[in-house]
Design a protein around this nucleic acid. Structure first.
Lengths: 246, 246
DNA sequence: CCCCACCCTTGACCGGGATCAACCGCGAAA
DNA sequence: TTTCGCGGTTGATCCCGGTCAAGGGTGGGG
């Protein structure tokens, strides 16, 4: 009841109930009252500069992270050194769930632009989950959705042609940006052609060629990292051409 | 303290503490005492005949399932009807975690041989997790491991050549069978070439050809669904040839 | 027990996307 | 302002694995 002033300040600054991302992030769907139960979920915030990593594969696991702003990629490195991009993450999304299973992160999370995350010590997440049912429910949903997302990528990689994959990627990006109040039709890619290619299981040259083809077909306008979507319905049509390539 | 005899019977029959899979399944790592806290986690058991489905994509979600014996595949069907196999599951593995996120299953689980599962109503899983910390920890680990597994498949599909993928598949199968007390080197495939191909992102003809090639190379012996692994180290070498195909 | 539907194998050919290579453009740093 | 380097684009060629086709094995249901 009489915590030191500094602690109070930190608690307020990192309080979910004060956060403008609460509609996107872990507390989604909680009432204002319920939200206050989460106010010491976040211990601190942490800034990560473009190019730096939040954590590396192999590092001990201790916390989950919620993106406050910025953009991340997650990568997996196989025994023989091949690197695979396994996801891209933006504001409100949760990072680090891969580490729970073995108390050790399996993938590396790297910022693709200057970013900031909320640090949620995992012991605290579990504690609060045990005492606060809505958080428990929601946390389980977030974990489950990550599984579903990954399965979607498996479908992408396992049974779609290169152009379908890239179209699906653009549609997905556009949808997630829209949900965050950005323009659905015009954005700047935070990642390189190589990173897109790794994520989608193709070479960077193929990504580049497909961007050009989509442009010729009037679906998009590309200028390096600037993309404007001209025909989202057309992209969705490309996505579902239904003639498996593999 | 004086429950009806029938209830007692059911409870005992489905008690995790009596189950010979407890070393593989949800209760792994719990002491005998702790185990008894789980004894009403499982409501009933359910048999699923070969070819039948435990649940379908789109169906409402209500329970998780633990495989007691048998073999399952999970499949995802895309909007345009393409089907992708997203996993194979054997005794002790947990099914249905995809359904938590949207209270609705996204994939279909089909038995590839006559099987039986333990039905764990999800509300009960969450209840027990809240009151019993070791279960909570372990449940989170299981969810996280499913995420990690999926990311492994993404790596497979995104950056490995066909022969590497099939080698990885065989090595993985062999390891999981070993953990269950089966022979590491000789087994019967429960799935068709088509299902393996879908899982690994290649056509059934390619799977068949690669099996033949592995046989010529003295790595395995194949006869339809019977496989004998002759050179597991050789397979592991094939897995890690490190020259990306995509 | 037999048969037929389903699964598997193998061959011939083709094409999508990888590979190799050259060049361009933009942004950061001096 | 110039330069340097990374990232992107585009072309030429190749080859892995997809496609099409034919035939063979086999195990489960009637």
């Amino acid at each position: 009841m009489n915590e030191p002033a500094l602690a109070t300040l930190t608690r307020l600054r990192t309080a979910c109930s004060q956060c403008n991302l609460r509609e996107l992030c872990l507390p989604v769907g909680l009432s204002v009252d319920e939200l206050q139960s989460l106010d010491n979920l976040v211990s601190t915030r942490r800034k990560v500069r473009r190019g730096d990593s939040l954590f590396y594969g192999g590092e001990p696991f201790s916390a989950l992270y919620a993106v406050r702003y910025g953009f991340f990629k997650s990568t997996l490195t196989s025994g023989d050194g091949r690197e695979q991009v396994t996801g891209f993450y933006m504001a409100g999304e949760l990072l680090g769930m891969d580490g729970i299973g073995a108390d050790r992160h399996t993938c590396t999370l790297t910022a693709l632009e200057d970013s900031e995350v909320c640090v949620m010590p995992f012991a605290r997440v579990e504690d609060l989950s045990r005492h606060f049912e809505p958080l428990q429910r929601h946390f389980h949903k977030v974990l489950s959705r990550e599984i579903v997302r990954d399965q979607g990528v498996m479908m992408l990689l396992g049974s779609m042609r290169a152009e379908e994959r890239l179209a699906a990627f653009l549609v997905n990006l556009s949808q997630r940006l829209t949900a965050r109040g950005f323009s659905a039709s015009e954005f700047v890619l935070r990642m390189t052609r190589d990173e897109i290619g790794s994520y989608l299981g193709m070479k960077l040259e193929t990504v580049s060629r497909l961007f050009s083809r989509f442009q010729e077909d009037g679906l998009i306008e590309v200028h390096q990292k600037h993309v404007r979507i001209l025909d989202i319905a057309g992209l969705k049509r490309v996505m579902a051409q239904a003639q498996s390539a593999s």
